[in-house]
Structure formats: structure tokens, C-alpha cells
């Protein structure tokens, strides 16, 4: 689509630049020639109906799609100017730069501390005091420290769903990624926990470029600065969130956000 209403950002403010990205699974197209730029240190939301390709697009950024058999990716994605789809890219290094949080809170069945320290230990950090410092920093950043500081050795599975999701966010930011991908981060949580996560997203945007996939449009409207609407594997519209939710330019966007999709 060449006439897609979209935004571009100054190269200095661009975090991810996607060009003509197509992804297919076993020959079935999931994304068709999507091009967009994701701004740095802002919250960008991807919305769209189920199967629109928003999660596929998100998972292209840290190449989690590689894990799926029969996947084919064409096009380009640049992270701060660096081609991340190139074959020589070490995905483990890439995934340290682009953290991800999933829909279901998925803490490891380990202690709270070990969960947050997991990524750090993988990187070879073994000094206990350094680990403690980093874990505390990550938990504070995820607004969880005060709730768990007295039970760092307790199993992470004893935390509530909302706490688990913030723990997972702490685990992701502990390795200090540049980008944070959130795949439906609050869809399994109650409204209060959801609000806490949304509040946290706002705070984290000061230090990270955040991309949120959500099918909760109100959530996208609440937390994001920019919103992309995808439909049937294509980018329909990418606008500032304020504009998208008051005067969308594409008819499909209008129909979707006003509840006329169907």
C-alpha cells in the first residue's frame, strides 16, 4: 500500500525502521509489505483484530518468529540503522537489545530474585553484590521493589498475576534493553493491575522505546503516543494516538475503532 497514512520521524528519533516487511507461515501471508518507523523513547501501540499481524510484526523485531517452522521473512528492519534481519546477526545479542514481555505472566518457577537475575547471569554476571544491585534497580524500575523486597527468595509463582507481570517486566529491563516489546501485557490481568502496568509503561517510556500490542483500543489510547492499525496483514494507518482516535484517516480504521468492524 503506497497511500497508507503514516508518519516518519527524524533519523535521530527513529528507533526501528521497517521497510517492505512481509512475513508468511508455510506460504500463508501474515504480513504484507509493511513499512513504518517506530520513534525512540515513545510508546507505540499496534492495534487490530486478531490475526491482523500485529503480534507477527512485534515478534519480527526480536526475531522470535525464527522459532516457528516454515516462516519466511522478506524486507528490512533496522534497529538504530542496523539491519537486524541479516543472517550474520546473533539473535541472542539482538534479544538482549530488544526485550519482550508476553501476554501471560510467565515468571520462571524460581525465586523472585533468580527470575530477575536470570538474564544477568546468562550474560556472565556472577558477582552476588552486583547481582543484588541490578536486581533491586530492575525491581524498582518495575515499581515492584516495595512489594517484594521482603520475599526475594520466595517462589515467583506466589506473587499475584499483576505482580508477576511486573516481575516479568523487571526481568526484561534488568538486562537494560534499548527496546521493550509488550505483547498484550495486561490482557490476563484485572483492571487495577492493568492500570498499574499502564502507569508503568508511561514511566518506562522515559528510558526505553516501547511497543505495545493490544486488542484493547482504550488501552492503546491511554498508554501510547503513536498508534498503528493493522488489518489483514497490512498497515492501514499509523498516526499520533490523539489523531487516530478522534479523526482516523482510513475508513477501515474508523470502522474498527468505532466498533463497526465485522
Amino acid at each position: 500500500m503506497t497511500d497508507t497514512p503514516t508518519l516518519t520521524f527524524d533519523p535521530a528519533d527513529t528507533c526501528l525502521k521497517v521497510e517492505q516487511l512481509s512475513v508468511s507461515y508455510d506460504g500463508k501471508a501474515a504480513l504484507r509489505e509493511v513499512s513504518l518507523t517506530v520513534p525512540r523513547h515513545r510508546v507505540t501501540a499496534f492495534i487490530g483484530p486478531s490475526g491482523c499481524g500485529k503480534s507477527t510484526l512485534l515478534r519480527s523485531f526480536n526475531r522470535m518468529n525464527d522459532l516457528i517452522r516454515g516462516v519466511e521473512v522478506t524486507g528490512q528492519i533496522h534497529l538504530f540503522g542496523e539491519d537486524i534481519l541479516a543472517p550474520k546477526v546473533d539473535v541472542t545479542v539482538l534479544r538482549r537489545r530488544i526485550g519482550m514481555v508476553f501476554q501471560q505472566p510467565n515468571p520462571f518457577p524460581m525465586s523472585v530474585f533468580d527470575n530477575v537475575a536470570y538474564g544477568l547471569r546468562l550474560q556472565g554476571l556472577s558477582d552476588q553484590r552486583a547481582l543484588e544491585r541490578e536486581v533491586e534497580w530492575a525491581l524498582r524500575s518495575a515499581a515492584l521493589w516495595d512489594e517484594v523486597k521482603d520475599r526475594l527468595e520466595a517462589s515467583a509463582l506466589t506473587l499475584s498475576g499483576g505482580q508477576q507481570q511486573r516481575l516479568v517486566i523487571a526481568r526484561a529491563i534488568a538486562i537494560r534493553p534499548e527496546v521493550l516489546l509488550l505483547d498484550e501485557p495486561a490482557s490476563a490481568l484485572d483492571p487495577i493491575s492493568t492500570l498499574k502496568i499502564e502507569e508503568l509503561i508511561g514511566q518506562l517510556a522515559e528510558a526505553y522505546s516501547i511497543i505495545v500490542v493490544t486488542h484493547n483500543m482504550q488501552q492503546a489510547a491511554r498508554v501510547s503516543d503513536y498508534t498503528a492499525f493493522l488489518y489483514l496483514g497490512e498497515l492501514v494507518e499509523f498516526s499520533a494516538t490523539d489523531d487516530l482516535f478522534t479523526r482516523p484517516q482510513a475508513r477501515q480504521t474508523e470502522d474498527y475503532i468505532t466498533g463497526r468492524y465485522g
Partner: peptide, 9 residues
């Protein structure tokens, strides 16, 4: 209903 876009307008 939290109307959006044309509904909101």
C-alpha cells in the same frame, strides 16, 4: 460506550 472517532465527534 467510550465512543471514538466519528462516534465521539
Amino acid at each position: 460506550r467510550q465512543p471514538t472517532a466519528s462516534d465521539l465527534r
